[in-house]
């Protein structure tokens, strides 16, 4: 388990990194926390010619709340997001879900943007990004562009980034008042990829669901948002009926793949079960005015 020979660069500025990506195209890979890339390298499943290590780029190491958005730079470790009280307040769903990513040791190295760019369909953070409507800031030598999360994930391990682009920042909208958020997951062990996970937000006024967001991990080739289930929550009443309708939409519409850990019908079943659990939790938090903060 030794990687094939590759050239290694550790630029100290974004410009330098973009220059390297432009020069080497698809032969280059960006190394951030390395929690997915290094195993792939050692197994020789990934054989990039060039590794562009962004860990020396200090300008990518920021976590800031700014005009209604939480901006997460490409070098921000998951552990930072997990522990920062501002994140818990601004994007409680992110703070809750990040704890399901691997273990502390992994989150100490792994980055939020790295997890998003890796685009594992069973990973937690891509589902969060889709649920809250995050935006990905991609830069290349040609300039910068923002990609909505729902357009960013194009397939298993595949994103809208072109080979010369670097995901420099992920922007998560701060939770508006009246919303409650929750994340639930079933995995074999704590820290594994989800057999199924659901990220949810509901906006509650006068006890009724006014708006909802639902996104699923482990339930398709990309993190899947389910507008039909959201509509069912918005339009159904009483809550129990709305929940029943949303769960049945989830079971009807999701098309998960089978793998060695879970059959497609188990995943569909879980999607229904977890939809109910996650919405109840988010609803309670919205009503309590707790947002998504865990005790």
């Amino acid at each position: 388990m030794k990687p094939q020979v590759f050239a290694y660069h550790d630029p100290s500025s974004v410009e330098e990194a973009l220059e390297l990506l432009a020069r080497h195209g698809p032969g280059a890979k960006v190394l951030a926390g390395g929690q997915s890339l290094l195993p792939l390298l050692n197994l020789r499943l990934a054989r990039p010619e060039v590794l562009v290590d962004i860990n020396r780029i200090d300008s990518l190491d920021y976590l800031a709340e700014e005009s209604g958005w939480l901006r997460v730079g490409a070098r921000v470790r998951q552990r930072w997001v997990e522990r920062d009280p501002a994140v818990r307040r601004a994007v409680p769903l992110l703070a809750e879900a990040v704890r399901y990513v691997g273990h502390v040791q992994i989150r100490n190295r792994g980055t939020v943007c790295g997890s998003l760019a890796h685009a594992d369909p069973a990973a937690e953070l891509p589902a969060v990004a889709v649920a809250v409507g995050a935006r990905m800031v991609a830069r290349s030598r040609a300039g910068a562009r923002e990609i909505p999360a729902e357009e960013f994930f194009t397939g298993p391990l595949s994103t809208a980034l072109s080979p010369d682009e670097l995901l420099v920042e992920a922007r998560f909208p701060c939770s508006p008042p009246g919303w409650g958020w929750a994340f639930v997951e079933v995995s074999n062990r704590h820290g594994d990829y989800a057999l199924c996970a659901v990220a949810a937000g509901v906006c509650v006024a006068d006890g009724r669901v006014r708006d909802a967001r639902l996104a699923y991990a482990g339930a398709g080739p990309v993190p899947v948002r389910l507008p039909q289930a959201e509509t069912a929550l918005r339009e159904g009443w009483p809550l129990e009926d709305a929940l029943r309708a949303a769960c049945s939409e989830a079971r009807r519409l999701l098309e998960p793949e089978a793998d060695i850990h879970a059959s497609a019908d188990f995943r569909r079943h879980l999607a229904g079960v977890l939809t109910e659990r996650v919405v109840r939790l988010a609803y309670r938090r919205a009503v309590d005015g707790a947002g998504g903060a865990r005790a």
């Binding site: 197994l43 273990h103 074999n188 062990r189 594994d192 060695i260 850990h261």
Partner: peptide, 16 residues
Amino acid sequence: LLSGSFMDFHIPTAVE
């Protein structure tokens, strides 16, 4: 063997 790594062969941890 389709579960030949610790990604798919799940040894329980202190949590379990």
